[in-house]
Simulated scan of single mutants.
Amino acid sequence: MVLYYFAGFFILIALLPLVHIKHWAVRGWDYVRVQTSFLQAFVIFLILILSYPERDWQWGMLIGLIATLTLQIIIVIPYSKIYPVGRKRPKNTSHLKKLSLITANVLQDNREYDKFRDLIYKEEPDVFLTMETDKKWEAELECFEKDYPYTVKVPIDNYYGMHLYSKYKLTDTRVEYMVEEDVPSIFTKVHYRKGDPLNLICVHPAPPSPTENETSKERDAELLLAGKKVRDLNAPIVVCGDLNDVVWSRVSRLFRKMTGLIDPRIGRGLYPTFHAEYWYLRFPIDHMFHSQDIYVEEMRRLSYYGSDHFPMYFSLLIKNGTPVDTHPDLDKETEEEIEENIEEGVEAH
Rank of each mutant, 00 (worst) to 15 (best):
Arg268Gly: 07
Lys229Val: 03
Gln292Ser: 15
Asn320Ile: 05
Ser51Val: 06
Leu233Ala: 06
Leu243Met: 11
Leu48Asn: 07
Lys228Gln: 14
Leu15Asn: 03
Glu277Tyr: 14
Glu140Pro: 01
Val203Ile: 15
Glu298Tyr: 10
Leu141Ala: 05
Arg265Ser: 08
Met1Thr: 15
Tyr313Pro: 03
Gln72Thr: 15
Ile82His: 11
Lys98Thr: 10
Tyr113Val: 13
Trp248Met: 00
Ile102Glu: 02
Ile201Phe: 15
Glu347Tyr: 11
Tyr165Arg: 08
Val106Pro: 06
Ser80Tyr: 01
Tyr271Gln: 01
Leu18Tyr: 14
Met258Gly: 01
Phe38Asn: 06
Arg268Asn: 08
Tyr271Glu: 02
Leu107Glu: 13
Lys122Pro: 08
Arg219Lys: 08
Asp331His: 10
Lys88Arg: 14
Arg111Pro: 09
Ser291Pro: 12
Leu243Cys: 08
Pro84Tyr: 03
Val152Gly: 09
Phe38Cys: 13
Leu99Gln: 02
Val251Gln: 12
Leu330Gln: 04
Met162Gln: 13
Ile66Leu: 10
Asp157Thr: 05
Glu335Trp: 09
Thr259Val: 12
Phe42Ile: 08
Arg27Asp: 12
Lys88Gln: 14
Asp242Ile: 00
Leu96Phe: 05
Val183Ser: 03
Ser303Cys: 07
Leu12Pro: 09
Val324Gln: 13
Thr68Arg: 00
Thr322Trp: 00
Tyr295Glu: 06
Arg33Gly: 04
Thr188Val: 03
Glu335Gln: 15
Asp172Ile: 04
Lys194Ala: 14
Asn158Trp: 01
Tyr148Glu: 15
Tyr4Met: 02
Pro264Leu: 04
Glu142His: 05
Trp279Gly: 11
Arg174Phe: 10
His275Arg: 13
Tyr31Gly: 13
Lys146Gln: 14
Ile66Ala: 11
Ile266Ser: 07
Thr130Leu: 08
Pro78Ser: 05
Arg300Val: 10
Val26Asn: 13
Leu119Ala: 03
Asn341Arg: 10
Asn105Gly: 03
Ser100His: 09
Val106Ile: 15
Asp263Pro: 03
Ile285Arg: 03
Asp157Ile: 00
Glu297Pro: 01
Gly269Thr: 12
Thr103Met: 11
Asp232Trp: 00
Ala226Ile: 13
